[in-house]
Amino acid sequence: MFEIPKNLPDANEFIQRLPFSKALNMRVDELAESRAIMSVPYDLLIIGNPATGVIHGGAVTALMDTCCGLAVLAHPDVNTPMATLNLKVDYMRPANPGQSITAEAECYNVTRSVAFVRATAYDEDKARPVATTHATFTLN
């Protein structure tokens, strides 16, 4: 039985049940209608450039995918499972080493079969995004 998380504790429990999200220590910070904010802490295991200590873009992408998916589930018209159809990430700058990454996603449109989402990721410098995303999800 598929249960849609509708509040913050449920959303965190939901994310904890996704092994890869759990492996990256993802956390849900906020959940509102059609919106989700999630973060992943800095970890030496996910470094992509050993010379600088900057984390790998793939970890940012994984956070974006999960956060966008959660925003879809937080949309009032969505009550079925969904799957990512396309996810596009633009990388603006490397994340500051030692800082956690936070993604804010908004599901801004839903049709009968497709959900559209945009998201932005930051480190502690909120004025300059690390990455932005556009994603589409299939419903059911």
Binding site: R17, F20, A62, L63, D65, G69, A83, V89
Partner: peptide, 13 residues
């Protein structure tokens, strides 16, 4: 874990 399917983040990575 219900399907179980590879996480989209792993595929993208």
């Amino acid at each position: 874990p219900d399907i179980p399917a590879l996480h989209g983040g792993v595929t993208a990575s």
